[in-house]
């Protein structure tokens, strides 16, 4: 039991609740369609226009392509600032150092 200040969190209760919910799911599933037949075409996932479903694997670089494409404006400057040049690493470090210095010395630390 974990007291979080404004509530509590108990993983054991959570697992018990999950188990109860799973039981309900199983009951509903048991009352499912009677015309379902194993081992027929019904079981296979339907993907339109994809004849060979079995051997397909989406490569990592293609995952979230849409997300990255939509946020191009955010990503381009971010990726460009990761130059991999040691001089830029130290410049960022010194920049933050100066900024922290201005804040602490300027605002009465």
């Amino acid at each position: 039991m974990l007291d979080t200040g404004s509530g509590f969190w108990s993983p054991l209760w959570w697992i018990a609740a999950l188990g109860a919910a799973g039981l309900v799911v199983l009951i509903i599933r048991a009352r499912g369609r009677s015309d379902y037949q194993k081992g027929t075409e019904q079981v296979k996932p339907f993907l339109s226009g994809q004849p060979e479903v079995e051997k397909q694997h989406v490569r990592a670089s293609n995952v979230y392509w849409g997300f990255l494409e939509a946020l191009k404006g955010y990503y381009r400057p971010l990726v460009q600032s990761h130059t991999g040049l040691i001089n830029d690493y130290t410049t960022w470090f010194l920049g933050v150092l100066v900024l922290v210095g201005v804040l602490i010395l300027g605002m009465g630390g």
Binding site: V79, H82, T83, G84, L85, I86, N87
Partner: peptide
């Protein structure tokens, strides 16, 4: 040259 040896970036 530090600019020519870098392979790690992004």
């Amino acid at each position: 040259d530090a600019r020519k040896i870098r392979r790690l970036r992004g």
